[in-house]
Computed example of a mutant assay.
Amino acid sequence: MAVAEQTPQSIVPLRSGRRRVLAGWLLAAYLLPLAVLVLAVRLDGIGIPQLAEALAAWVSSWPGMPEVRFGHIEAAANIAVFIPIGFLLTAMLGRRSPGHATGIRGTWRFGVPEVAVWLFCTLFSAAIELAQLFLLTERSATLRDLICNSAGALAGVVIFRMADSWRAHRRLNSRKESAS
């Protein structure tokens, strides 16, 4: 049985398109409750600051832990909240190279550069902070929040790149092993 010669364009896995769609749905499913959380002033009479203060007091009570303040919890939460956004936006919009995924050196790439994904996340964070500043007088908008959100988005972009690179390297090695 003759095997037809394949070009880089014909080798690009169809799963890449499915992965982008899945990443889009996961991002939407993540952003909806996040929007409710960001825009909510109170949850059952307990505000987000009160929850963070209680968490800080609980963590500070652990043996050997230094004093943890509200600002520490808030900064860590802002970073953690934006890691999935950076990760999923990169999965949905980020660049792909056929050579990277298939072992054939491709010269073309499509998608949005990672720096554009990160800048979009930073602008999204700025929009959230502006909404909190002008629409929600009970919430505060700070430059530290913007920086932490941006750092979380950058971490998500980097984590996706590392995972994608590892996956492509594994796929290439398994193809080399099966060919020999």
Rank of each mutant, 00 (worst) to 15 (best):
A163P: 03
R20C: 02
F124D: 00
S10Q: 13
D44K: 09
P33Q: 12
W108P: 00
I79V: 15
L39C: 12
L51P: 04
I85Q: 02
L146R: 04
W58H: 14
R69K: 07
P113E: 09
A151T: 10
I79M: 10
A23I: 05
A80Y: 02
T142H: 08
R20F: 05
R42T: 13
M162I: 15
V38G: 00
A168N: 08
I48K: 09
L89Q: 04
P113V: 08
E53L: 08
V158K: 04
V68L: 05
T7P: 00
L89C: 09
L143H: 02
F134M: 07
A116D: 07
R18W: 14
P113C: 06
R105I: 13
G24M: 08
Q132W: 08
A56E: 11
V68F: 06
Q132H: 14
A153S: 12
A163I: 11
T7Y: 01
L143R: 06
A116K: 04
V112D: 01
A40Q: 10
Q6S: 11
A127V: 12
N78D: 05
V157W: 00
N173W: 12
W58M: 12
F70W: 04
L32Y: 13
V117D: 01
L26V: 08
H169K: 14
L93G: 02
L123D: 00
E177L: 12
L43E: 13
A126Q: 03
A80F: 11
E5H: 02
R144C: 07
V112N: 02
L93E: 04
T90E: 04
M65Q: 10
A56T: 09
S178M: 10
S174R: 14
F134G: 07
F110Y: 10
A116N: 03
R69G: 06
V59A: 14
A52H: 11
T122A: 13
H100C: 07
M162W: 13
V38Y: 02
A127P: 01
G152A: 10
Y30H: 10
V21N: 06
V41S: 14
I104Q: 07
C148L: 03
S174H: 14
L130G: 01
F110I: 07
V41Q: 15
V158H: 06
E74P: 03
P49G: 10
G17Q: 11
A179C: 03
A40Y: 14
I11H: 05
F82H: 03
A40C: 12
V41E: 15
A91E: 11
A127C: 06
A101E: 15
T107F: 08
F87C: 08
E5A: 04
N78I: 01
W166L: 15
V81Q: 06
S97A: 14
V117L: 05
A153V: 01
A54F: 00
Q9G: 01
L27C: 01
A4F: 04
V81E: 00
R139A: 09
F160L: 04
R109C: 12
V112L: 14
P98I: 10
F120E: 00
F134S: 05
P49C: 11
L43T: 14
P49T: 07
A155R: 04
T107Y: 10
R171N: 06
L26F: 13
V157L: 03
G45H: 08
M162L: 15
L26A: 13
A4W: 02
V3A: 12
E74T: 00
P84V: 04
N173R: 15
E129N: 09
F70M: 01
V21M: 13
F120Q: 00
G64F: 12
